[in-house]
Amino acid sequence: MNFPEELKYTKDHEWVKIEGDIATIGITEFAQKELGDIVYVEVETVGETFSVGEVFGTVEAVKTVSDLFMPVSGEIIELNEALEAAPELVNESPYEEGWMIKVKLSGEPPADLMSHNAYSELIGQA
């Protein structure tokens, strides 16, 4: 499975890409595979500010529904509008076209975000 080295990861199987004070967030290839076909990404929290660990939305697969947890603290400034019509992008391209939200960071990103290596180890793919 593919876990790009330039990304950071959480134990909830989200990835974070930090560029300046903006974080782009999605779910990992492992997460999309576990969930199966994603049919609905519900994020109605654009403009709201969250702390690490809070639920900012849900992702629905055919068989299951899962909460989405904030891997960083900050304000959600953008939602990937393409997922409205094509939620399957999360399955097909979890790190590129299937990104979910962009967040304006409040302060430094948490220190416990995992590296590519640590995440691979967590899911037993090291």
């Binding site: 595979k33 576990e34 199966g36 076909d37 049919v39 055919v62």
Partner: peptide, 20 residues
């Protein structure tokens, strides 16, 4: 297949995609 415990058995829940 992704195998899950179901009704006391290890069962294939999905091979590729539920929708496909």
């Amino acid at each position: 297949a992704k195998i899950i415990p179901f009704a006391g058995f290890h069962m294939p829940v999905r091979y590729t995609s539920d929708i496909e």
